[in-house]
Nucleic acid binder design. Structure first.
Lengths: 249, 249
DNA sequence: CGGGTTCTTGACTAGTTTCAAGCAAAGTGG
DNA sequence: CCACTTTGCTTGAAACTAGTCAAGAACCCG
């Protein structure tokens, strides 16, 4: 893993996540513990690798800024994106609890990550059950997102799949205030969208065109705008559920 | 949820999982806590529903005997099986931590489940960090299985997918000693296999035939035998990793 | 202003689904 | 105990969705 020079640390007190109403507040004790659990902060440039499949990682990270994606690749070059990673998400837990990372993580935009020492994970469990519970919350939510993704790949048509991820991505970004007015500034390529949905690049492009022809969305500059959300929901059979403030570590 | 009359309880001391070398042992304190956490035991007949999508569940379960599957269904009847459930697996955590179950669980054979009170989950975190850690282990492993499944649905051909699940299913069963001599007695239909792999029943059947014609497996009486494991591994690009004793609750 | 990505489009092909029909095994009721 | 029904498996043919190949256009970066 290569990344840019470590930034000077943002102290936990001014952590961008803590100001965000989408995230639940910390009490003083929890904050004190998290400060001791944390070993620093790193910046990862767009396109670089944060974690590699097959390796054990010494660290766990919480995303402070930027977007990334979690993926698995096969020997012959086929690649499957498992999930997208946004601010507040925790990455590397699998590598900390099991012995080896089953997936890789790449940054799709410049990211800033809060770094935690894997070896102190145990003290989180023994001293801060409330944080351990939050960890489990985070793991359950990830499972729920994967479940939904599995339904898409297994049972939805290309058109439904695309409409569905677009809505999902938008709503996940909107949760943390990152998608104003239906505009989703996720910096990814059509190839990445294809690798997410288990489609070929060409078919993804043609399906995207079908959606823009119907006037429900536009794709430009590696991001998209939902111009007719209702129609998209109709296509994807998607319904939005109001989110409660969520935990993070 | 309807199930048969509650069986008389197997005491934790004679729990079938505890005797099984595939599972890590409990110490006396943990055992005492689990006994208080546990509210009883239920039997679920093959075909019945254990948990329903959309509902909150008051209980969490550990499978003592039998097999089942976790799935999501869409309004129009399409169905996607997310994962299979075997002895030692924990179900219902998502419903306990988040507020609603995003999936359903059905029994594919007669099952016996150990029932825990969702409301006491918090005391598990606060009093037994070692068990909380095990819970996280279990959640991470589920995530890993889902990741692998996602790769299958997204990037593997029908032939690869079938070879891959068959091996996975066999090895998961073998872990707990339930698949002697390559014979996997999983009682499921081809329709269920199709719903697992995101394929149609017809194509699943034809692909299964292709595999039996090549002499690598046989399918009979709703279970299968791996007659040429190496060839299957070759097709699926599958490699087996030795498993350590795993936790359970 | 080149050279490299990324996006776009058309033509052709392959893999998978859908439709349709028949068979076998297991259960059900008279 | 035997018709009758149901459920699961099997097979072929036709239709269609998505993949591959190929080539050009647009965009980005140095």
């Amino acid at each position: 893993m290569r990344h840019s020079t470590p930034q000077e640390s943002t102290p936990c007190e001014t952590c961008p996540l803590r100001k965000n109403p989408a995230f639940r507040p910390f009490d003083a004790q929890q904050l004190a513990f998290v400060k001791s659990f944390r070993t620093g902060e790193i910046a990862v440039a767009a396109g670089e690798t944060v974690l590699s499949q097959g390796r054990a990682s010494d660290s766990i990270y919480t995303v402070l800024k930027g977007w990334g994606y979690r993926y698995k690749s096969l020997d012959d070059g086929r690649l499957q994106i498992l999930n997208f990673i946004m601010p507040g998400d925790l990455i590397g837990l699998q590598g900390a609890v099991l012995d080896e990372m089953g997936h890789s993580v790449n940054a799709s935009s410049d990211m800033v990550l809060c770094v935690f020492n894997r070896r102190k994970l145990w003290s989180l469990f023994s001293e801060f059950p409330s944080l351990a519970y939050d960890l489990t919350w985070l793991a359950s939510r990830e499972e729920q997102l994967l479940d939904e993704h599995l339904v898409s790949l297994g049972r939805r048509s290309a058109l439904e799949r695309i409409a569905h991820v677009l809505l999902l991505l938008h709503d996940r970004a909107a949760e943390t205030g990152a998608a104003p007015e239906g505009r989703m500034p996720y910096p990814f390529s059509q190839q990445q969208l294809a690798d997410t949905l288990g489609l070929s690049l060409v078919h993804t492009n043609k399906t995207l065109r079908k959606l823009t022809d119907r006037g429900v969305m536009t794709w430009r500059d590696r991001s998209f705008v939902l111009t007719d959300r209702d129609a998209l929901c109709e296509i994807a059979k998607y319904d939005y559920a109001e989110k409660q403030p969520r935990p993070f570590i």
